[in-house]
Design a protein around this nucleic acid. Structure first.
Length: 481
RNA sequence: CGGGGCGUAGCGCAGUCCGGUUAGCGCGCGUCGUUCGGGACGACGAGGUCGGAGGUUCAAAUCCUCUCGCCCCGACCA
């Protein structure tokens, strides 16, 4: 541990984050300010995220489609709050084929408008409902301050768009999908989240209300890791999405939209990473086990490599994502550090001693040094032991993150207490009945915002920490990314 | 857009105040050899419009003017 290519988290968390992204080869900067290249290793994580989510979407009855990148500017203007919310961050195309366009085109910041324009043509009858569509796409938002994965001019995401016959059905859908996100975040990403409802100020532009899942990063700041909106009939009215119900009467549809982006990769980095680099949850890790061969004499090389290949095949056949690091220019020690940087959950070491005894050495990424190392594992047991290890690591990462988060959420009953908690970097939880102005004041004075009103609420009512009035629900305040 | 800082090899920097041979260091990169159970070592080597333009000067990485870009802090945000 001599080379210090990663800034320790305690020294500069933000530098650490950028160092990890560079050293683990997740992403690189693009030539245009605020853009990034997702490198193969980072993209492989995204592909696993896609696979996990897509499967869940299909299971809940959604189908994939693709809508155009360009949207007529006038579409955005059809929904008043929507355009007000997005207009500062729109990228506009005004010239096409060398000619000034009659109407500027918006590079989609989100696809509500164009999708609903199409929905209006597809939906005629209650028999067409519910319409449950998802698309995997890139979107563009001209942000002022950018950070890889967390906020870039262009990012990848999925956006679900649905239309329903009733308020209740749309509400159920919005809740179902935030539930799907939670299931994904906790069970695949090992990222514990608090699911709740956004305050009026933080609600998506054009929605009735917004559900969110909030995760605590390693520096205790909050990250909105996925959102689900009940759009009500706002877009239906703007785009005339109507259907004939059973009584032959025209009705506007009720809608939802929900999205999760490459930002989630940022969450994985910041929730699990340590001073040695990434720690990837096994279910999303591009490489779940890496084999490092070790030999001293040329004589050993042949038998070691043979054993490595044998074990590699065993693991691969068992469906474990495995890679053998056969580079001869690197020492085993160097490789250990390299793959720890990359966050690979399990390392398999095979040297002459192991070959002789028909065993392997297993090391787990979530436990440092010798503590996480088991020697003398018989080759025949390798698959079973590694499977078990992967499960343990998956569970352990979630548990560690949950313990850290819970230790840093503090109940507060006064504004003074809230300020103290926020000043130390934690999350503050307390009864809230304040106004928009009160909320803005908190933001201005402490830097914290209401992350959400958790769906899980204690017995009420309580007393508002700000106004002293009777409050029906608790809110969580935190500084956020 | 306001405040602060920085542009010299792929990366990190020194040199700039006080102009002067061939612009240097560490890491990385290439070749060869010895190494290899927690970031090995040696030898040789490749790599530079000193962010850009203009000016001052016998002479500019260094001084002057303009310009471009990046980073950090604030106002907006998945």
């Amino acid at each position: 541990m001599s080379e210090q290519s990663i800034t320790p988290r305690s020294v500069d968390y933000s530098r650490w984050y950028l160092d990890v992204i560079r050293e683990a080869e997740l992403a690189d900067y693009g030539p245009v300010r605020g853009t990034m290249v997702i490198r193969p290793y980072g993209y492989a994580i995204w592909e696993n995220i896609q696979r996990s989510l897509d499967q869940r979407f299909k299971q809940t009855g959604h189908v994939n489609a693709y809508f155009p990148l360009f949207i007529p500017y006038s579409f955005l203007q059809k929904e008043k709050e929507h355009i007000e919310g997005f207009s500062p961050e729109l990228a506009l195309v005004t010239i096409g084929g060398g000619k000034e366009l009659e109407e500027p085109l918006v590079v989609r910041p989100t696809s509500e408008t164009i999708i609903n324009y199409m929905f209006a043509q597809w939906i005629k009858s209650y028999r067409d409902l519910p319409l449950l569509i998802n698309q995997w796409a890139n979107v563009v938002r001209w942000e002022l301050r950018t950070r890889p994965f967390l906020r870039t001019l262009e990012f990848l995401w999925q956006e679900g768009h649905t239309a329903h016959a009733t308020y209740e059905e749309a509400e159920e859908e919005a809740l179902r999908m935030i539930g799907v996100y939670r299931d994904f975040a906790e069970n695949e990403g090992a990222v514990p989240v608090i699911v709740g409802r956004k305050s009026r100020l933080e609600t998506f532009a054009g929605a009735l209300h917004t559900y969110t899942m909030e995760a605590m990063m390693g520096d205790k700041r909050a990250l909105q890791a996925g959102t689900s909106h009940h759009l009500g009939q706002n877009f239906a009215k703007a785009f005339e999405i109507r259907y004939l119900d059973e009584n032959n009467e025209l009705q506007y549809v009720w809608q939802t939209s929900w999205g999760l982006s490459t930002r989630f990769i940022g969450a994985i980095i910041m929730v699990h990473g340590d001073d040695k680099g990434l720690r990837l949850p096994p279910r999303l890790a591009p490489i779940q086990a890496v084999i490092v061969p070790i030999w001293r004499k040329e004589d050993d090389k042949g038998v070691v490599l043979e054993a490595v290949e044998q074990v590699r095949c065993l693991l691969a056949d068992a469906g474990i994502r495995v890679e053998a690091d056969l580079r001869e220019q690197r020492t085993p020690g160097w490789k250990f550090n390299f793959w720890e940087m990359k966050g690979v959950p399990v390392r398999v070491e095979i040297g002459p001693r192991d070959v002789e005894s028909g065993t392997v050495v297993l090391a787990r990424r979530d436990l440092p040094g010798k503590e996480g190392k088991v020697t003398g594992v018989p080759v025949e047991q390798a698959v079973a032991r590694i499977r078990q290890l992967l499960d343990e690591i998956q569970a352990s990462l979630l548990e560690q993150a949950r313990a850290f988060r819970d230790a840093n959420i503090h109940d507060v009953s006064s504004y003074e207490e809230l300020r103290e908690v926020i000043a130390t970097g934690g999350w503050a939880r307390g009864w809230w009945a304040g106004s928009d102005e009160d909320e803005l004041r908190v933001k201005e004075e402490t830097g914290a915002t209401i992350r959400c009103f958790p769906l899980d609420q204690p017995e009420g009512p309580g007393t508002c920490l700000m106004t002293g009035q009777k409050a029906e629900r608790i809110a969580i305040f935190a500084k956020a990314y």
